[in-house]
Nucleic acid binder design. Structure first.
Length: 349
DNA sequence: AACTCGGGGAA
DNA sequence: TTCCCAGAGTT
């Protein structure tokens, strides 16, 4: 095992090349004793799960503007949080965010736990996030392995086992690499290195601070490692989305079930999404449609949707859903799929 | 262990 | 198109 990787090399690189982020205390401020807010670290880490920094930035700012403290967030309605989360995806994160905030107050006196095992019990906090919060917010020496660090370590040690099978091996190596000094900056340095230098495609080995220590670079395999198991192909499902507009400009919307796809989110009524869906509109009306359809890709299937539109009278009584006035709801509070549907449905009005 | 769960940017 | 992104929860 290559234990020659000196933390100081990486930390020196980080001191000069750290990315700036709204939730981060940079290396200079950190050295002068400024500590990051655990609330900010936690919120950013939840948002960053499988989500890019570029995407998260504006959502993070929106959230801390709306809920400046953990206490404010804990007192929010779930519908407010899901509305603000709309478009970010993986909506269980939004529901767990509120659950977690409430638990911090009911179980931990409103103060974030600092140790890994306690953090791991919180909803939405898994092995990565528990380690990241403990290391970054509290400067604890914890093992942190995200997608960036997986790639960096895979190349440093030229691991030939494909991901995700090599996950345990990588975690054990990471355990040996984590330093006693500045563990929080160390993990952020590894992630920044993976994001800006040790990139998935065309890694910039010539400017890498670990060039001399990296086995893959030495053997010219940096652009091949890590190997990955093939992902299975996504099937295609079809369905209908129904946009109902009442004469007073109100729209028919439904709160989706708390579990499952787009769980807890507000959206237009839909049919089932399957290979051969039935066209089952939520109300009887004169339905308009077009030949064009929406294509939208979820994590594990493609969706092809036909959008239908209807105007209905004031006395319309749908079996499900509620009418919300146009001024009372915000298109941006809907998941992306439903925003797309609205844009197509708008043409039918 | 395998499956579920979003959406966007880059190549 | 495919891959990847500061992964976690459920079955």
């Amino acid at each position: 095992m290559n234990s020659k990787v000196k933390p100081s090399i990486l930390l020196n690189w980080y001191d000069k090349n750290a990315r700036e982020m709204p939730w981060r205390i940079g290396p200079l401020d950190r050295t002068s004793g400024i500590r990051p807010s655990p609330y900010h670290v936690w919120l950013s880490e939840i948002m960053l799960q499988q989500t890019t920094v570029a995407t998260v930035r504006s959502y993070f700012i929106k959230f801390i503007r709306k809920w400046p403290t953990l206490e404010k967030l804990a007192q929010a309605e779930e519908s407010e949080i899901t509305a603000a989360w709309a478009g970010l995806g993986y909506y269980a994160r939004a529901r767990n965010l509120l659950k977690c905030a409430k638990i911090i107050f009911s179980e931990y006196g409103g103060k974030f736990p600092s140790d890994y095992k306690t953090l791991l019990k919180l909803p939405g906090v898994g092995p990565y996030t528990a380690g990241a919060i403990s290391a970054i917010a509290f400067d604890r020496n914890e093992v942190v392995v995200d997608g960036n660090i997986e790639r960096v370590i895979s190349r440093l040690f030229e691991i030939e086992t494909p991901l995700p099978n090599s996950k345990d091996e990588i975690t054990e190596i990471a355990r040996g690499l984590t330093p006693e000094v500045r563990p929080g900056d160390y993990v952020q340095a590894m992630m920044d290195l993976g994001a800006t230098v040790c990139t998935p495609v065309a890694p910039k080995c010539l400017v890498c601070p670990l060039e001399q220590e990296c086995l893959a670079n030495k053997n010219g395999s940096a652009n091949l490692v890590p190997f990955k198991l093939k992902k299975k192909k996504k099937p295609t499902r079809r369905g209908f989305i129904y946009i109902v507009k009442r004469v007073d400009q109100a729209y028919l919307l439904e709160r989706r079930p708390a579990k499952g796809l787009l769980g807890g989110m507000l959206g237009w009524p839909t049919s089932e999404w399957c290979a051969d869906p039935k066209d089952k509109p939520p109300v009887d009306a004169n339905w308009q449609t077009t030949n064009s359809q929406i294509r939208h890709t979820f994590t594990h299937f493609h969706l092809e949707v036909i959008v239908k539109f209807a105007n209905v009278p004031l006395n319309c009584q749908p079996k499900q859903g509620v009418f919300l006035e146009e001024n009372d709801f915000d298109l941006t509070s809907l998941p992306t799929l439903f925003q797309k549907a609205y844009k197509l449905g708008y043409l039918l009005k």
